[in-house]
Nucleic acid binder design. Structure first.
Lengths: 147, 147
DNA sequence: GTAGATGCAAATGTTTTGCAACTAG
DNA sequence: CTAGTTGCAAAACATTTGCATCTAC
């Protein structure tokens, strides 16, 4: 009820078309609302409609990136996509030990964003920001051994 | 005069060996002091010594990552490596329009780090943090057209 | 001498591309 | 109808791996 509209609007503006495949990819991203690989999107789309090609998934993901509706991050050596949509940018802490992602609310990072704006004239558009570190549990468990 | 020592120490500790190839890779990383691809490291190493294989470069980069002497980030779809060494973690703003990297000093981001520690018990070990956005110049130039 | 490291070449896995057939507008 | 989109298959690309040879210790 929002990303879809935006997607359609941007498609129209540039003379592109809304195809079932494109709709499905967007829907999937909306459903999972997390970081997914192209392969995962492909798997899910395949479940909906027997024949969508993975190249189409890649092409759609690229399109969505161009439209700033989707962001990409590399997690653990894999390229992962995520809907930015109208949910606005958000952020994560990633534990290097157990790989969990902890979500942080935008307001927690707001001061930083403002500071970068003021000091560097830099407008953070971060669709996605990942801070690497070690979570509480792993800090406790680790205390000595790596991995 | 520092990373080298640390590298050697960690190698010894784990029963690994210091080879000319490993030394060269580390030297290169020290020289460029920026984000480089494995390919770029390979090119430079090749200039020094005619025959070092790219697989050795990859293997060495992985080793350096294990030792926390090197960090990886994905920039513009490419995996890039950077010496963390004893320079400590540092951070960048990346302009999505012109791809420039603006370095930010650790102290600018210190409050955020402390906050994450307090609120989420999360120890940020970020060897490298990249914030995406649009730099001042590109904001001015853009004002209307994307890309 | 021996365990570990290297170079080579082949394998892997992901992402991209060319093209004829198809379809949204 | 027509330009844009798709599926397919092949290509391109970066990264990893097996193995015989070599070498740091």
């Amino acid at each position: 009820m929002c990303c879809q509209q935006e997607f359609l609007k941007q498609l129209r503006e540039r003379g592109f078309r809304l195809t079932p495949q494109r709709e499905m990819v967007l829907d999937i991203l909306h459903d999972v609302s997390g970081h997914v690989t192209a392969e995962e999107v492909y798997d899910r789309v395949s479940r909906l409609s027997s024949c969508v090609d993975i190249s189409t998934v890649y092409r759609t993901l690229e399109l969505l990136q161009d439209f700033h509706l989707v962001g990409v991050v590399e997690i653990d050596g894999q390229r992962r996509y995520e809907l930015l949509g109208l949910h606005g940018p958000h952020f994560h802490l990633r534990c290097n030990a157990c790989n969990q992602l902890v979500r942080i609310e935008p307001n927690e990072i707001q001061p930083l964003i403002e500071q970068m704006q003021q000091r560097h004239g830099f407008q953070i558009a971060a669709g996605d920001l990942i801070l690497d570190g070690v979570c509480r549990e792993c800090q406790t468990n680790q205390s000595g051994g790596t991995a």
